[in-house]
Amino acid sequence: MYSKGFRPLSIAAVLATGTALALIFFYAPNDADQGFIQKIFYVHVPMAIVALGGFVAGGIMGIRHLRTGDRSWDMRSYVAIHLSIILGAGVLITGAIWAKASWGHWWVWDEPVLVSFLVVWLLYCVYYPLRYSIEDPDRQARYSSVFAIAAGAFVPINFVAVRLAEAYTHPRVLSQTGGSLPGEMRLTFLVSTLAMTLLFVTLWKLELTSKHASMQLKRLRRRLEATA
């Protein structure tokens, strides 16, 4: 049910990830003032973009679930949020490493994107205790979808608010990921983002398939016990 097109997708993800890694290490130039460590950018930023996309997608799937009443959409939303939380941990760790290397501190509060990300990540971490402390499966799906929708809408608001707070104390004209990347870096960045997206979708499908399979197995086992 979820495994349609899984093989070509996973091959594409492997190829894209390989290409991205090759480009990062052999093609993209070293940054003039940060040197080699700047290459963590090609992992950190795509990971952040994909994680945020996953959170918002989880909210949209939550809307589909409440609209249609089809619980498989809640499962999709859950897996998207689950993977995004894992990626989010990676974003925070790579962000800290990058901050340590280029500013000398593991954490800096005047980087609005990273700070917003921490707030969003803390909020989404509550998804697990919320979801797993509701027993009734129907209700669990419904409450989780409501959380996914509210949190998905919270993501952009939070980014605007944190940026406003920072702009107030540290005026910032251009975000450093915006338009000013030279061509080779830009290509590497775009390929890395594509690779991360494909990887995310592949893992998402894999997790959904395995969840579906284990649920079916449980159902079959229960039926077997009933007849035996």
Binding site: V119, L123, V126, L130, N158, V160
Partner: peptide
């Protein structure tokens, strides 16, 4: 746990 992160933008404002 749910309320406080949701209130961060409000606190900032």
């Amino acid at each position: 746990l749910l309320l406080l992160p949701l209130l961060v933008p409000l606190l900032i404002g």
